[in-house]
Design a protein around this nucleic acid. Structure first.
Lengths: 138, 138
DNA sequence: ATCCTAGCTTGGACTCTGTCTAAGTCAACA
DNA sequence: TGTTGACTTAGACAGAGTCCAAGCTAGGAT
């Protein structure tokens, strides 16, 4: 994680305690937290941190390419710190659990030129949906 | 469209003027409207229709599998009446325009067993992102 | 043809995410 | 150590969607 903080400082980031805490929260496990969850965990270490700062910091991390934003559905966006290893997501329709997955092949290559309508394509996200073992059992 | 209304009636749907109007709006062109846009168009024909009813009806159509919900990103969900022809979406990062696209191959087949974590997989959505010709020019 | 009633609709209040703003604070350079 | 512009804060605000109690109505029952 100090890697991340170093990288950010190298890019002119002012290193405040708030930003450090947010970065540390995301560095934890390989989770997919919502902004509010990040705020809650950050507040355990820095009780006076504000929601606005968490949103600002997450937005900056996304722009810097250090964190990915995952829009699961109508709910809150989730933030994925695993930004340097390309992957897709598998989401449980029952409980909302998310796992990183690595399908074979490149989805962009699967889109014929005739289907691109002149767009300059920059990326493709694949979202697999299904029931996790726990939810399937019920 | 009367097809759709017939199918719905066959499933025990009570056919009200509100539901008919919402279904007709979606049947129009092959568009991807937001709930508010559906409401606006429905209100042209049935001025007293409420937002709540539009949301209810759209939700029911989604559950019945007659309409797809497209969660683009942080914005409002869009409703896609083209539910009976499998396809994916290409979204312009600039203006939000959406096109239906048909990539080759089956994304589900691209996910190895070892990457399924015991999930019962029910579907996969692919979202291509890029700039449409208009936005790329600017 | 009319009656009944479960199911549908309504408007408005409410919730949830996320953004904005003005005022105060502070990291980092000089 | 002082300065300054970038950062943070609380709270107001906004957009999308949900919920609820009260009233209405489609369509089967009579």
């Amino acid at each position: 994680m100090s890697d991340l903080l170093e990288r950010l400082r190298g890019r002119g980031w002012r290193l405040t305690s708030q930003r450090r805490v947010v970065a540390e929260v995301l560095d934890g496990d390989h989770v997919h937290l919502t902004a509010d969850e990040v705020h809650a965990r950050a507040a355990e270490r820095l009780p006076e941190i504000s929601r606005a700062t968490v949103y600002n910091t997450l937005g900056e991390l996304v722009i810097l390419g250090e964190v990915l934003e995952v829009s699961t559905d109508g709910r809150a966006k989730r933030y994925d710190p695993n930004a340097h290893h390309p992957h897709q997501h598998l989401i449980c329709s029952g409980c909302g659990a998310i796992r990183d997955v690595h399908p074979q092949g490149d989805p962009i290559a699967a889109l014929p030129d005739a289907e691109r309508f002149g767009f300059l394509i920059s990326g493709a996200e694949v979202t697999y949906r299904g029931l996790c073992p726990d939810c399937a059992r019920r």
